[in-house]
């Protein structure tokens, strides 16, 4: 077995620098790499390009990096929950590339799987298609989208083992598996790090080959963005 475990977030994030491109898993605040984000805030590295479906909220998730003006550019599909984000975007301080959610997922998967580009119908005829190659297949129009290139991918799983195998829970899975192995280095933080052999190989969601470093996360807040309940 090839061991992927590191002591903690400090060792895991060795090598992150100004002006790098990061992928960050999560949908809203669900399944975000909380420990890694906190460490990036602490390191206060700047000029970052962040590929993430959302930009967090004002005081949590990627919103924490935005507050310190660490992010130069965001690549996201939906950014509606963050006032500071909107302010920075409208004032021109922050560069933003909005792309369809399925395209975002697939550009990660393409990078993971060695495809330079792919055709998708999403965004055809809209401003998303501007400047992109288009092509017809079987009477329908598609646009060419390219694989992402990133330095680090930060993902969060429910459980993981010493070999870097990952298991997710519920909808906290989202973009995390797509980003594993899609950047030069993938850092996985987990709620529960278990010895090799404790995960059933049949139940592994992401094989450890896609993960370079794994560590036991701490103090997960797992904030709920829209608590919605019904009466008994």
């Amino acid at each position: 077995m090839i061991r992927k475990t590191v002591a903690g977030v400090v060792e895991a994030t060795e090598g992150v620098k100004d002006n790098m491109t990061f992928m960050l898993g999560g949908f809203g605040l669900c399944g975000i790499p909380e420990n890694s984000i906190a460490e990036l805030v602490k390191k206060n590295i700047k000029g970052l390009t962040c590929i993430s479906n959302n930009a967090g909220v004002d005081d949590f998730g990627l919103g924490l990096l935005l507050q310190q003006k660490q992010i130069k550019k965001m690549v996201s599909s939906y950014v509606g929950e963050n006032d500071e984000f909107e302010r920075q975007m409208l004032s021109g301080e922050l560069e933003v590339e909005l792309i369809p959610q399925g395209t975002l997922a697939e550009r990660c998967k393409a990078a993971q799987g060695g495809f330079p580009a792919f055709y998708t119908p999403a965004g055809y005829g809209t401003e998303v298609a501007e400047g992109k190659e288009t092509r017809e297949f079987n009477g329908k129009m598609y646009i060419l989208e390219k694989a992402f290139e990133a330095d680090f991918a930060f993902v969060k799983a429910w459980k993981g083992d010493e070999a870097g195998n990952l298991v997710f829970k519920g909808t906290a899975r989202n973009f995390n598996p797509c980003m594993c192995g899609a950047a030069k280095i993938t850092i996985a933080e987990v709620e529960e790090l278990v010895p090799a052999g404790s995960l059933d190989p049949d139940q592994v969601h992401v094989p450890g080959i896609f993960v370079q470093k794994i560590f036991q996360g701490k103090n997960y807040e797992k904030r709920i963005e829209q608590l919605t309940v019904r009466k008994r």
Binding site: Y78, V79, E86, Q101, T103, T120, A122, T126
Partner: peptide
């Protein structure tokens, strides 16, 4: 400007 989320994939 909130973004398209999954809407462009869905309608396409």
């Amino acid at each position: 400007v909130k973004g398209m989320g999954g809407a462009m994939d869905l309608v396409a």
